[in-house]
Simulated scan of single mutants.
Amino acid sequence: MGEHDIKHHPSEIRYVSEDKRLEVTFEDGRHFSLPAELLRVESPSAEVQGHAPSQKQIVPGRRHVGILAIEPVGSYAVRIKFDDLHDTGLYSWDYLYKLGERRDELWQEYLDNLEARGLSRDPPSRR
């Protein structure tokens, strides 16, 4: 994917650490508030997405996940480093836009998938 194929370009990206959310404003005026947890469980990495939709991994226990760093990749994406050490996902501007547009639907799918598998958003307790 080249930078010329990108439909949406952000005018501002800001991480609000106390709320663990990424605020993204696009040039078309759309603004999205994306929780770090959603960004993590919807990571575009092969580790999470697999190589086909049927291989997508459900990632439990990420309620408290935060972001350590956001690194630009060319002029078309960012690499997000999470505090659970996941850092292989490249979030293109269009992917961030899509996550913003579908946030509520994706969040509900995530909750439904966890419930269906008896998994929790909370990390396993350390005993």
Results as ranks from 00 to 15, higher is better:
R103G: 06
H9C: 12
L22F: 01
G118M: 11
A52M: 06
E27K: 13
V48N: 06
A77P: 06
Q57T: 10
E115F: 08
H51F: 14
G89Y: 03
V59F: 05
H51C: 10
R30L: 14
A52V: 00
I58M: 09
R127C: 02
H31Q: 15
Q55V: 03
R62S: 01
R62I: 04
R126I: 06
V41W: 00
D19E: 12
S92L: 15
I58D: 03
V24A: 01
H9P: 06
L68E: 04
A36M: 05
S75F: 12
P10L: 07
V73D: 00
R117T: 01
Q57D: 08
G50I: 05
Y95S: 08
I6S: 14
E18M: 15
D87A: 11
W93Q: 06
P10I: 11
S17D: 02
E42N: 08
R103V: 10
Y91Q: 02
G61M: 04
L38V: 07
K98C: 10
N113K: 12
V16Q: 10
E18W: 15
R40D: 07
R21E: 12
P35M: 09
Y95W: 07
V65R: 03
K56N: 05
I6H: 09
H9M: 15
S17P: 05
F32C: 04
P60S: 02
P124G: 00
N113W: 13
E47G: 04
K81P: 03
E37K: 11
R117C: 08
A77V: 11
A36K: 03
R127A: 09
H9I: 15
E18I: 13
D19W: 15
Q49Y: 02
D104Q: 14
D83F: 05
E101D: 09
R79K: 14
E27C: 12
A116G: 06
H4M: 14
P35N: 06
G50Y: 05
L114S: 00
E23F: 14
R102L: 15
P72H: 11
D19V: 11
R121Y: 05
L68G: 00
L111C: 07
